[in-house]
Amino acid sequence: MSHATYELKAETRERVGKGSSRELRRNGLIPAVIYGDKQAPISIALSTKEVTQKIHAGGFMTTVATIDVNGEKISVLPKDYQLDPVRDFTMHVDFLRVSGNTRVTVEVPVHFVNEEKSPGIKVGGVLNIVRHEVEVYCPANDIPEFLTADLTGLKIGEGIHISHITLPSGVSPVIADRDFTIATIVAPAGGVSEEAETTAE
Rank of each mutant, 00 (worst) to 15 (best):
K49G: 05
K49T: 10
E50A: 14
V51G: 13
V51F: 10
T52A: 13
T52D: 07
T52N: 13
T52Q: 13
K54H: 01
K54V: 07
I55K: 04
G59V: 01
T62E: 02
T62N: 15
A65H: 07
A65S: 06
I67V: 14
D68P: 03
V69T: 03
G71I: 11
K73T: 04
K73D: 10
I74T: 14
I74Y: 08
S75Q: 05
S75G: 10
S75A: 06
V76I: 13
V76F: 08
D80G: 15
D80I: 11
D80P: 05
Y81N: 12
Y81C: 11
Q82S: 14
D84Y: 14
V86G: 02
V86T: 12
V86I: 04
R87V: 12
R87E: 12
D88G: 08
F89K: 14
T90M: 03
T90G: 09
T90R: 09
H92I: 06
D94G: 04
D94Y: 05
F95C: 07
R97F: 13
R97T: 10
R97Q: 14
S99H: 12
S99Y: 01
G100Q: 15
G100M: 14
N101D: 15
N101K: 15
V104Y: 00
T105E: 15
T105K: 14
P109H: 00
V110T: 08
H111C: 07
H111F: 10
H111M: 12
V113M: 09
N114S: 06
N114I: 02
E116P: 04
E116V: 11
K117C: 03
K117P: 04
S118F: 03
S118K: 02
S118D: 00
I121T: 02
K122C: 08
V123I: 13
V123W: 01
G124N: 03
V126Q: 06
N128D: 14
N128W: 11
I129L: 04
I129W: 06
R131N: 10
H132L: 06
H132A: 06
E133A: 15
E133K: 13
E135F: 00
E135G: 00
V136Q: 02
V136N: 10
Y137I: 07
Y137L: 06
C138Y: 01
C138I: 05
C138K: 04
P139S: 11
P139I: 07
P139F: 04
N141C: 05
N141E: 12
N141R: 12
D142R: 10
I143D: 02
I143T: 05
P144W: 00
E145Q: 07
F146K: 11
F146G: 10
L147C: 10
L147K: 00
T148Y: 02
A149M: 00
A149Y: 04
A149E: 07
D150G: 08
D150M: 01
L151Y: 01
T152Q: 09
T152H: 10
G153K: 06
L154Y: 11
K155H: 03
I156P: 09
G157T: 07
G159Y: 06
G159A: 11
G159F: 08
I160E: 03
I160G: 02
H161S: 07
I162R: 06
I162W: 09
S163I: 05
S163H: 00
H164C: 12
H164G: 15
I165H: 09
T166L: 15
T166R: 14
L167I: 05
S169A: 11
S169H: 12
S169G: 10
G170A: 02
G170D: 02
G170L: 01
V171G: 10
